[in-house]
Each structure stands twice: as structure tokens, then as C-alpha cells.
């Protein structure tokens, strides 16, 4: 079929696709998390086990991916639903800015936990 209709980037098609892709990534990471923590090795997860894991760079990389995907998926989801109820451009910009800032703050706090706190302890 021809591709002669307008692109989906501004219509909502691309964020819909990314929402689905991030959901699949989240599902895989969540399953990996459960298997790594609860089904392999120690049984009951202790604080020291987590700290030990956090010393490995590959583990932190996975945690970072988890954090980024979860935040993207959550904030994009709120935005997609919030868009239903906002028509004024000013309101949309305001809510979008709040969500982006919220995402940035949570990302910063999460990265501190993953990279800094884990390395010190």
C-alpha cells in the first residue's frame, strides 16, 4: 500500500507505538528482576545482596534502563490520557512542562540511587 498519507509523528501514532514498545521492554525487565532476585540464589532478598549486585556495572546499566523505561512509560501514559481533557494550548504546555519536570526529578533521584549510593555503600 502507498505511504501517501501524512506521517504519524504529530498525530499520536508514534507515542502510541513507543508506549507499546516500552511496555514490552518493561515486561521483560520486570520478569528478569523477579527471576534474578526471587528465583535464583538466595531465596529471601537481603539488603547486602542488593548492594553486592549494585557493584556490577552491567547490573546498574539494567537498572538504569528499567528506571528510564518505567518513567517514560508512566509519564507518557499520563500525558496521553491528560490530552483528552485539555484543549487550551496554555494548559497543555503547563501540564506537559510539569510532567517533564517530574520525570527529570525522578530520573535524577533514581540515578543517584543507582550509581552514587550503590557505589559508596
Amino acid at each position: 500500500m502507498d505511504k501517501n498519507f501524512k506521517e504519524t509523528s504529530r498525530s499520536g501514532g508514534i507515542i502510541w507505538l513507543f508506549q507499546r514498545v516500552s511496555a514490552v521492554i518493561l515486561f521483560v525487565l520486570l520478569m528478569a528482576h523477579y527471576v534474578t532476585y526471587h528465583f535464583i540464589g538466595h531465596g529471601i532478598v537481603k539488603y547486602v545482596d542488593v548492594i553486592e549486585k549494585m557493584k556490577a556495572p552491567w547490573f546498574n546499566l539494567v537498572q538504569f534502563l528499567f528506571l528510564f523505561t518505567a518513567l517514560y512509560h508512566g509519564i507518557n501514559g499520563i500525558w496521553m490520557v491528560a490530552e483528552d481533557y485539555m484543549k487550551k494550548k496554555g494548559t497543555r504546555i503547563f501540564v506537559f512542562s510539569i510532567l517533564v519536570m517530574l520525570g527529570a526529578i525522578l530520573m535524577f533521584v533514581g540515578m543517584l540511587t543507582i550509581f552514587k549510593a550503590g557505589a559508596k555503600l
Binding site: 501524512k6 504519524t8 498525530s11 499520536g12 501514532g13 507515542i15 496521553m80 490520557v81 490530552e83 483528552d84
Partner: peptide, 11 residues
Amino acid sequence: VNDKNGIWRCH
């Protein structure tokens, strides 16, 4: 239908 008020408002 590929519009902000089209198919993408379906959740």
C-alpha cells in the same frame, strides 16, 4: 483517522 482526535484518542 490518523489524527489527534481520531484513532489515537482510543485508549
